[in-house]
Amino acid sequence: MEPRNCSQVLEFLLLGFSREPELQPFLFWLFLSMYLITVIGNLLIILAITSDTHLHIPMYFFLSNLSLSDICLTTTIVPKMLANIQTQNKVISYDTCITQMNFFILFAGFGNFLLAVMAYDRFVAICHPLHYTVIMNPRLCVLMVLVSCILSVLHSLLQSLMVLRLSFCTDLEIPHYFCELNQVVQLACSDTFPNELVMYFTSVLLGVGPLAGILYSYCKIVSSICAISSAQGKYKAFSTCASHLSVVSLFYCTILGVYFSAATTHSSHSSGAASVMYSVVTPMLNPFIYSLKNKDIKRALKRYL
């Protein structure tokens, strides 16, 4: 069959996790609960930080942006998935699919950059405490967030434009719960080598780059903490970055788990199930990680509530 040009009206089918009817109510209420917890938890973090003047410092400024990114990330994929489960209609239009894919790449990349920026903030706070207020001035903080946002937008636009050049045939079933970039590219009838080349290049540049910055920052942090003589000083210094380290570990370990799972099992369904960890579970757990281990956040939440 001749491939149809992507400028024509196309529809994809999001197969989701299971086609068994008896599992659909369970999946609906499970993901609805996780989505509400994610939105409410991250929204409380943002409101607590903005309402408490004591938290108007770089670390919490970055945290509020990360919470906003998590809300947007889950909102990009979960409501559509819930609607598909409730209506038993797995169809998603071509335009909606490309839009969903674009915003997912944008907010996932933005969160990735923010984790690297937060690692740099902890590096300056622990390794250069006397110059912290000078280095991490408001202008630099806003600039780092703005650059992270711009890079994420450019990356998402690049990937979306690369997909728009593809042609698709009649087999348009996506064995996933949202329009994931790799799954959409695999459905194309035309040559996907340029898309795969761009995906691998950007994954190395925008994925390994921030991770390398995070690892370098924490190597310096660990060496500075080891140089502290008192045990109480070591504990106090480590506690300032424990929450961020937990979020970084959860984020990157789940992403690596997704790719290793896809590489070993070659199953799109198992890859989709693993993707839930970094796209839904991680944004849901972030507010708990930061609030349970942070006295300032807990105090601000009590004041706000």
Rank of each mutant, 00 (worst) to 15 (best):
P3G: 05
N5A: 09
C6M: 12
F12T: 01
L13D: 12
S18H: 03
E20S: 10
P21D: 09
P21V: 12
F28K: 08
W29T: 06
L32M: 14
L36G: 07
I37D: 06
I40G: 05
L44A: 06
I45V: 15
L47G: 01
L47C: 07
L55M: 14
H56G: 07
H56C: 08
I57G: 06
Y60W: 07
S64V: 01
L68P: 00
C72I: 10
I77A: 13
A83N: 12
K90G: 08
V91I: 14
V91R: 12
Y94D: 11
T96S: 15
N102K: 14
I105T: 12
F110Y: 13
F110A: 03
F113M: 14
L114S: 00
L114G: 00
L114Y: 01
L115T: 11
A116E: 07
V117I: 15
A119I: 06
D121M: 05
V124H: 07
A125E: 10
P129T: 11
V134N: 12
R139T: 13
L143W: 14
I150T: 08
V153G: 05
L154N: 05
S156P: 05
L158V: 08
L158W: 02
M162G: 05
T170C: 11
D171N: 11
L172G: 05
L172I: 12
F178A: 04
L181W: 06
L181A: 10
Q183C: 10
V184M: 15
V184E: 10
A188H: 05
C189R: 11
D191M: 14
D191S: 13
D191Y: 12
N195P: 03
L197C: 11
V198P: 00
V198D: 03
M199K: 11
V204A: 14
G209S: 13
P210D: 09
G213F: 07
G213T: 05
I214G: 00
L215A: 10
S217D: 06
Y218H: 11
C219T: 13
K220M: 08
I221F: 02
S224Y: 00
I225E: 02
A227Y: 05
A227E: 10
A231K: 04
Q232C: 00
F238A: 03
T240C: 01
S246L: 04
S246K: 09
S246G: 04
V248Y: 00
V248M: 01
L250S: 00
T254A: 11
L256G: 12
G257A: 03
A263Q: 01
T265Q: 01
H269P: 00
A273V: 14
V280W: 05
T282V: 15
L285G: 04
N286I: 15
N286Y: 08
L292G: 00
K293W: 01
I297S: 02
K298N: 08
K298M: 07
L301F: 04
L301N: 03
K302A: 09
